[in-house]
Design a binder for these strands. Structure first.
Lengths: 198, 198
DNA sequence: GTCTATACACCGATAGAC
DNA sequence: GTCTATCGGTGTATAGAC
């Protein structure tokens, strides 16, 4: 009996194909909207037939689920990069945290819709895909707690405020900056409310 | 040549059928989600075949458009009812205005999605259907202006704040009250920010 | 294992008989 | 005005070629 090979070339290939499928799906989602994604479009883009995708994902919602997890993992990586560079001044750090999230959302509205809205019929993220989003949430909470903002209600208000600006922007002035440019003002309002020093 | 009849029975009947179609559409939207609405379901509910709907609406998006306009007109009627009863105290009135909008949104999530999110593929409200939402917007702006909150940026922040709470509620804790119960606190935060008396 | 061909049920929309 | 029939498109399932 032979030893198992050190590298599992087949598993590597499989994973590479999955990545290729997801990449194509993201391109189409950015282009036509995440709700207008079709399996035939995805397959076409990588030279496959639609049913072949079922060798890599159990359903279309499974693809959405992988995209959801990937998006939040990507943002978690952004948080990892940004966190060490955050200002020691609470008010400045608050604005940096908010700005980072907002920039990420605005850069890709389709991704934001998938990550933060529950708008795709029948799609509910799996616990595994949901995990990185929970981690991002906890990171933010922990960081604000260092400033003395420890109340969950206050953190919920913080996230709702940022999300509200993003949603208003995308729904009422897509591509513009009417709401987005209010972010710093909004963060000052919040900082005052929770008693951060000026 | 005969005089035209005083009542146009045919037009009345036509309008009644349109109303019946919309009513059925709302029931299904509430039940299965606004994005899961199908013409066959709507037709079935009123004892028609799907193609017959095209005698009353030019497309499915036309139905969405009528629903959009109806929802905002309904809310405008709510505003009409509530406005005379608003408190003379700016801070209290602010909370009443916000609470009214939030209650309307939470009472029917499908309606809120249609009214305030741009999430249905290919649907863009027509100018006629958009008009009542503009009117609601102007009413709110005018009312806040009476308290000295005249800056458009401040009003935009006000609407984003309320919408953010609603969206966070529906996306992360549907049916609960984790974000919704923060409304009064959020309104106090905003009132402080714009300098309303305590 | 990977992919294709084929099929099914459903969708919005249209044509045409009555 | 309402119907039947049908079209092209969708997600999904499966049998079978390689």
């Amino acid at each position: 009996m032979l030893d198992a090979p050190v590298r599992d070339r087949q598993a590597e290939r499989r994973k590479a194909t999955r990545t290729e499928i997801l990449q194509a799906a993201w391109e189409i989602a950015r282009d036509k909207g995440v709700a207008d994604l079709t399996l035939r479009d995805v397959a076409d883009r990588i030279g496959m037939r639609a049913p072949s995708l079922y060798s890599y994902f159990r359903s279309k919602n499974d693809i959405y689920d992988a995209m959801f997890g990937q998006a939040w993992s990507d943002y978690l990586a952004v948080v990892d990069d940004v966190e060490p560079t955050l200002s020691a001044d609470p008010r400045s750090a608050l604005k940096q945290i908010a700005r980072t999230f907002l920039d990420f959302a605005i850069a890709d509205p389709a991704r934001h819709q998938l990550m933060n809205q529950r708008t795709i019929p029948g799609f509910v993220p799996s616990p595994e895909s949901y995990a990185p989003s929970v981690e991002v949430f906890e990171r933010g909470r922990a960081h604000l707690a260092r400033f003395g903002v420890e109340d969950l209600d206050q953190f919920d208000l913080f996230t709702a405020l940022i999300g509200g600006l993003i949603n208003a922007q995308q729904a009422n002035d897509p591509g513009g900056d009417r709401w987005v440019r209010l972010l710093d003002d909004a963060m000052d309002m919040f900082a005052d409310h929770v008693g951060l020093p000026r």
